[in-house]
Write a protein that binds this DNA or RNA. Structure first.
Lengths: 244, 244
DNA sequence: TCGGGAATGTGGTCAGACCACCATGACGGT
DNA sequence: ACCGTCATGGTGGTCTGACCACATTCCCGA
């Protein structure tokens, strides 16, 4: 077919760019099914192996989705699809960068919480309260962590910015939170966490953005300050410890 | 080798997780060279093709780097490496999500600018001024865009949070800015942009974080408001238009 | 009419070959 | 003795063709 494209980088890289361009130009709509790997490879004049690598790359980026036995599809290209890789960053970061990530989270989450305070509906507030109460009603760390995540997720969702929500989701992903939370909560921070959550909830119920922003910033800031201390004290790396 | 891992998802996916785990557990250090594709494939008991797909996936994520004829290496795992994919999001987003991205940028950049005002050194300030003057000294849109990017990049760098800088880099990537900027500047916003930049610079020189935050937020907010109007008016999609 | 199974098409995996590139070191000229 | 040159081996990059696993479709028989 179009042999117009000359040598430029590796063959696979070229294929990645071409498919990305097709989507950018609107020639491929979200949800649409692509030609088969074999056809695509023929069209671009490359082998199926190289085409598969290109598809794999775009799959990882959350742009394409391959369904075994069915075909290759363009994702909905929503924030959640494209920002899923953000979680990997949190998983592989350690030491000083963990603090930086928490600083980003503090900035974004305090803003999101402020927005939520202004816009939250009674239904959304009920969802928040559900997880708040569930969190206070149990002592099981696993369950607490689950409802803690859901609590913040519900708030961020009420802010109405899906992109921001997707980023924060990556910054609060289960493994990331678990790593930091474990050490933090060991120091008897449960009670403080409960107070901070209550303050956030009150600000939301009062529709008070400024109070909500301050409460959220303080909440994340507490963890951030603790982690900063840990990193400075011992050169903490916080790898995914292989617990024996 | 370790045939202990049973069937779980696709073979390639398993390989991706295993390599990611090796890095997470510290068995692979940043900058370290990995075994050859052939050896890795043998070790994990899979074919070279599948292993190559796994490597491609981790390459896209910014975790690995393959050098033709030399070998496969673990990247430095710095924020820039891992967040490079963030630019793809900006490239493929359109319509309402563009506004959301700009909102995220406003939040992060205003914070970064405030931090910079508090910490910036004379050398860093000189760098900022260099681009500010260069930007005001030309009429070539390409050059203006270049120095505009460099202006903000220098400020964000002075904030001292590499993770935040990497995210903002993705949100200001050349293609993203070009798409929005083109339309924005067509409406004679040059003069306003100059005033806003001057205000940001003065706040930095005065080491006044609050003024810096306000100026940066207003600056991005201007573009954001304009874009929001565009999206609401015509159902603007802002694809990479194939200009005929 | 409807249930089930075969046929087909798809992505997933494998094997082996060859090419392009890089690093190293042996070699020969100076 | 020094240094540039080039041969060589090893590495990632690409291609081919085959087979497997899964989803969908469709047709046939109950």
């Amino acid at each position: 077919m179009d042999e117009s494209v000359p040598q430029k980088g590796t063959v696979t890289q070229r294929a990645i760019e071409q498919i990305k361009a097709m989507i950018g130009e609107g020639r491929l709509e979200p949800g649409q099914r692509l030609p088969t790997e074999r056809d695509l490879a023929t069209q671009l004049g490359i082998s199926r192996s190289s085409m598969r690598e290109a598809i794999r790359a775009l799959t990882v980026l959350g742009v394409l989705e391959a369904r075994h036995g069915s075909g290759i599809y363009v994702t909905q290209l929503e924030a959640g699809d494209l920002l899923e890789t953000f979680g990997v960053v949190a998983d592989l970061s350690r030491g000083p960068r963990l603090v930086e990530l928490l600083e980003v989270r503090r900035v974004l989450e305090s803003t999101a919480t402020a927005l939520a305070a202004a816009r939250i509906t009674p239904e959304q507030l009920a969802e928040v309260e559900k997880h708040l109460e569930a969190m206070n009603a149990t002592e099981d760390p696993e369950e607490i962590l689950f409802h803690d995540l859901a609590f913040h997720r519900a708030i961020v969702a009420a802010a109405g910015n899906e992109t921001m929500a997707a980023i924060l989701e990556g910054l609060s992903s289960r493994t990331f939170r678990a790593r930091v939370w474990r050490g933090y909560q060991e120091e008897g921070a449960f009670e403080r966490t409960r107070r901070e959550h209550a303050r956030i909830h009150r600000a939301l119920a009062d529709h008070d953005p400024e109070a909500a922003r301050a409460a959220a910033a303080a909440h994340v800031g507490e963890v951030e300050a603790w982690l900063r201390g840990q990193v400075e004290e011992h050169g903490w790396t916080t790898t995914n410890g292989t617990r024996p």
